[in-house]
């Protein structure tokens, strides 16, 4: 699927954002570089790019680097330099540091985002990429020429910042490695979550709450090896009274997850879509304080905050339903399809 349809779906959702952030994540877009991590970066100037490249070369090979193609449009202004680097960590470095390649890349991303002035990595997975800017999402899609990319899954977001600044890095999706998050809502547990997750090497640098959910996903899924369903039971844990009504085996598991990862319970309204290599997971907060609708048509699944956004993409959509709060909707691409 090219980016055209999802851009269309954002048009009737125009009033859900205020032009201070729009973005997309696309999976399966770099088949020719699918074995390399694609780092998408905002850079203030040429000097920032040079020093960033030098830093990357210390631990990895850069197989290809280029400016991400954009269009000039009056709707998007003040853009930084926007580059992508396809990289592969050096085997010798991995061996001596005793790291796997994901951890090596994740550490490099954290180092650049916290220590390098004027450089910021906003996407770094394999065969996927985030495209974001300050602007309305439909204009951001036009700016990045997303109709020229083909992906097996797309997510999109229009931002309406209420508590934190609207800037290029603050637009959604937020990504680390191949995990990306779009989020509609406002997390009241942000600081509790941040304090916990920063103990494990993550640094929250983006002045917005959504970032922390991305790191929680990476921590629980990649580092702790939880399943997507288990991750949902941690961040949108059922109430004690709801757990008490489950069967014994289920109770045991839910109590374990609530107790062990109590600091990763995300409270406040949220409706999120987590993108990952091979699929998507949609999840609402347990009180369902934000809306979410799911529909299907043939071999496609659609998820949106409003049914109207789905109808624009697929007027004949079937099996429309609203998942309950805390009930994850997990969609996986058929084996071998990408």
């Amino acid at each position: 699927m090219t980016g055209e349809k999802i851009i269309e779906s954002m048009k009737p959702m125009h009033d859900r954002s205020n032009g201070l952030g729009g973005g997309f994540a696309a999976y399966g877009i770099y088949p020719e570089y699918k074995d390399f991590f694609a780092l998408h970066m905002f850079l203030d100037d040429r000097a920032a790019r040079k020093s960033c490249e030098a830093l990357l070369r210390e631990t990895m090979e850069i197989v290809h680097a280029e400016r991400i193609p954009t269009r000039t449009t009056p709707a998007i202004t003040d853009e930084p330099l926007i580059w992508r680097f396809f990289v592969s960590p050096l085997r010798s470095v991995l061996a001596s540091m005793q790291l796997n390649e994901e951890e090596c890349v994740a550490r490099a991303v954290m180092t650049i985002n916290t220590q390098m002035k004027g450089a910021y990595v906003f996407s770094g997975g394999k065969n996927m990429g985030v495209f974001k800017a300050v602007g309305f999402p439909e204009d951001v899609g036009y700016f990045y020429r997303l109709e020229e990319y083909e992906a097996y899954s797309w997510t999109a977001h229009g931002r309406y910042p209420t508590n934190t600044p609207g800037w290029w890095g603050g637009a959604h999706p937020f990504a680390l490695l191949d995990y990306s998050i779009v989020h509609n809502g406002e997390i009241s547990s942000y600081d509790a979550n941040r304090r916990f997750i920063e103990m494990f090497g993550y640094k929250c640098t983006l002045q917005t709450d959504t970032e922390v959910i991305t790191y929680i996903a990476d921590y629980l899924l990649r580092k702790q090896g939880l399943s997507l369903e288990e991750m949902a039971s941690v961040i949108a844990a059922p109430f004690w009274s709801t757990i008490a009504r489950k069967d014994e085996c289920e109770q045991k598991k839910l109590l374990y997850l609530r107790k062990v990862f109590s600091s990763l319970l995300v409270t406040g309204p949220f409706s999120i879509i987590l993108g990952f290599d091979g699929g998507l997971m949609a999840l609402n907060d347990r009180l369902k304080l934000r809306s979410m609708v799911v529909g299907e048509k043939d071999d496609k699944v659609f998820i949106a905050s409003e049914e109207a956004a789905i109808r624009v993409m697929e007027p004949g959509v079937e099996n429309i339903y609203a998942p309950a709060g805390g009930e994850p909707v997990i969609v996986r691409v058929k084996e071998g399809k990408f």
Binding site: P12, M13, D15, E306, E307, A308, A309, R311, V312
Partner: peptide, 11 residues
């Protein structure tokens, strides 16, 4: 009276 068609999410 009014009949509206092609409605897509107008609030």
């Amino acid at each position: 009276d009014i009949s509206i068609t092609g409605c897509f999410g107008q609030r």
